[in-house]
Amino acid sequence: MELYIDKMSTDAATDILNWRYDPPYDFYNNEQTSEVISEMLAESYFSVFDENKELVGFFCAGSSAQVPNESYTYSQGFIDIGIGMRPEFTGQGNGTLFFTAVLSQIDTMFEKRSKRLTVAKFNDRAIRLYEKLGFSREAEFVKGSTVFIVMVKVEVEV
C-alpha cells in the first residue's frame, strides 16, 4: 500500500469525526462540531490517503497534538505529533507503514527535529508501535480518569 499526504479538507475532517472505534478505543471517538472542523482545517492537520484515494488516517503537528493538562509542561524543542487511523485499518499490522509515512512527512516539514507524542496509557498497540519506531517513555500524567504517557524520539544532530 502506498500512502499520500495532503492538507486536511472539510470532507476529510467530517469523515474522520464520524469514525467510531470499538471499546476501549472509543475513547478516541470525536464529536462533529464547527469548532473541531475549524481546528482540523488549520495548518497543522493533514490527511493520509492510500493509492485508491481512500482516507486511511490523519495526523497533526504542533500544539494541536498536545493534551492540555495541569501537571505536565510541554517543553520547547520538540515537534508534537498526533495521529489517527481509520478504525477498519487498526489492529491489522498497518501501523508501521502508516506511522513511518507520517514521520517521514514530519521530517520533511520540520527538518528532522526531535519528536514527542502523547498517548493514553491503555493503548498498548500504539505504545508498542511507537517504541518499535524509536520513541521512549518520558513522563506520565493524569487528565480526568485517563493516564497519558508522553513519549519522545530525540534526533541527534550530525
Rank of each mutant, 00 (worst) to 15 (best):
S71D: 15
T96Q: 09
A126M: 06
E51P: 00
C60H: 05
Q66E: 12
F49Q: 03
D50N: 15
S44E: 12
F59T: 11
E51Q: 04
G91Q: 08
G134H: 01
S47R: 04
E43S: 14
Q105L: 01
S136C: 07
F98A: 10
F78K: 13
F135K: 00
G77V: 07
S104E: 15
S44Q: 11
E88A: 14
A65V: 08
R125H: 08
F110L: 06
N69D: 08
T118S: 10
T100F: 02
E111F: 12
F135P: 00
F78C: 04
G91I: 04
S64P: 01
K121G: 10
L133D: 12
G77S: 06
A65H: 07
M85Y: 02
S44M: 02
V67S: 00
F98Q: 10
N52P: 00
T100M: 08
V119K: 03
D124K: 14
V48N: 01
D50C: 07
L133T: 04
I106H: 08
F135L: 11
I79G: 01
R116K: 10
R116F: 05
S75V: 12
V48L: 10
V119P: 01
A101M: 09
F89V: 00
Y45P: 00
R128T: 12
T100D: 11
T108K: 13
G93Y: 06
T118D: 02
A101G: 08
F46H: 10
S47Y: 02
V56K: 15
I79Y: 01
V48C: 02
G95P: 07
K112R: 12
E111I: 04
F98S: 10
D80M: 01
R128N: 15
S71I: 03
L103P: 00
N52Y: 10
N123L: 12
Y45W: 13
I106P: 00
K132H: 15
N94C: 09
F122T: 09
G95W: 12
K121L: 15
S136N: 11
T100Q: 14
S104F: 06
I81L: 13
L103R: 02
E43H: 06
D80H: 09
S104V: 01
G95A: 12
R137M: 07
P87K: 03
F49L: 12
E70D: 14
K121P: 00
A126R: 05
N94A: 05
E131F: 01
K121C: 13
A61N: 13
S44C: 06
N69S: 07
V119W: 09
E88I: 09
R125P: 01
N52W: 00
T118C: 13
G134N: 04
S64M: 11
N123I: 07
D107L: 00
A65E: 13
K112V: 04
